[in-house]
């Protein structure tokens, strides 16, 4: 029987392990660099983390079901290119933005269809759609970015509301909404159920296929939202944008305690995971190291995070 009294270190690590790592990184960087703990620098980190954090929310849903979405980066790029060309040909901004979200959500839904109806594993489906979308993007643009986007768009990337950067606000609001969805709706409950035991869930009379399709729709939708923020920040739509977002969004979720075997994960953890990566990135810049080192560091961090998760799973199994 589970222990109830005393200090439950397992739950603590599950919930706050990532937070402790974040704090540790911040303390070390504060000691090393006098610029780290300044309001301006922290704001920069938050803005830079926003895009990946938004994508990682959707990725968390997907990974909780035991899947993976490798197409988020390509989805974002294709969605950006489509809406940017609409903008440059004079379509009202709000229509363009709604189209961006709708297109990306539909893209995700198609992933879900292939996974549930054709029964192709998520890894393969999203690897395939990643390649397809990236290819289409490059064909349309011939590899060149689309610039001269409407001035109003920059509000999503560089605007502020009472001193808070808009990208940061968007990611906080998205995190709050989807945390609520995960914990207080049937869809959220079924997402955990599907990831923990798909067949038992199906035999309880739940439409597991629909749940999985909706999860990939959410992942696509948030990739589209992140794309809007990115275009706002850069002022252009880049056909090769988001190439590293697949890896980084998975990393954020996994560092934040989402288990690749499914059934476990939460939005709060993922946000911390994304911030850890943002802080690491920033730290390398402050230390004057090439951002290439960051890629090396993230690789190690991800492997360690999954390893620790596996250790925990083994312990659970032994206790059974």
């Amino acid at each position: 029987m589970e222990k109830t009294q005393g200090f439950d270190y397992k739950t603590f690590i599950e919930k706050y392990g990532a937070l402790a790592i974040l704090a540790l990184c911040m303390i070390v960087l504060t000691i090393i660099s006098p610029y780290f703990l300044t309001a301006l620098n922290l704001k920069t980190i938050a803005i830079q983390t926003a895009v990946i954090a938004i994508i990682a929310i959707g990725q968390t849903f997907v990974i909780i079901t035991g899947g993976i979405d490798l197409s988020v980066g390509a989805n974002l790029a294709l969605s950006n290119i489509l809406t940017a060309s609409m903008m440059t040909s004079g379509v009202p901004l709000w229509i363009c933005l709604v189209t961006a979200l709708a297109f990306s959500a539909a893209f995700g839904y198609v992933n879900g269809l292939a996974i549930t109806k054709m029964r192709v594993p998520p890894f393969i489906v999203t690897l395939g759609t990643m390649s397809i979308a990236r290819g289409i993007t490059l064909v349309i643009t011939n590899g060149t970015p689309i610039s001269r986007l409407p001035e109003a768009l920059s509000w999503f990337g560089r605007g502020e509301i009472v001193g808070l950067p808009v990208p940061v606000l968007i990611f906080i609001v998205a995190a709050i909404i989807f945390n609520w969805v995960l914990n207080h709706t049937l869809f959220g409950r079924y997402t955990y159920a599907v990831g923990s035991n798909m067949e038992a869930t199906r035999l309880s009379g739940i439409d597991t296929g629909r749940t999985v399709r909706m999860v990939y729709l959410v992942s696509g939708l948030l990739a589209g939202l992140a794309g809007i923020v990115l275009m706002g920040r850069l002022g252009l739509a880049h056909p090769t944008a988001g190439a590293d977002y697949n890896m980084n969004s998975v990393a954020a979720a996994v560092i934040g305690g989402t288990s690749l075997t499914g059934g476990v994960g939460n939005i709060f953890g993922t946000m911390i995971g994304a911030l850890i990566m943002g802080v690491l990135d920033n730290g390398f810049v402050l230390l004057g190291l090439s951002s290439f080192y960051q890629e090396i560091a993230i690789g190690f961090v991800v492997i360690m995070a999954v390893y620790l998760d596996l250790l925990q799973q083994t312990k659970l199994r032994e206790r059974r």
Binding site: H184, T185, Y192, A193, G205, G263, V264
Partner: peptide, 26 residues
């Protein structure tokens, strides 16, 4: 049968969530 990682109460209600929700909100 069981979703082993779920708390007991979520396993009890899994097949009847329509009774415990309104407009999909639990």
């Amino acid at each position: 049968g069981a979703i082993l990682s779920f708390p007991i109460y979520q396993n009890i209600t899994l097949a009847s969530m329509d009774q415990f929700s309104r407009n999909s909100v639990i």
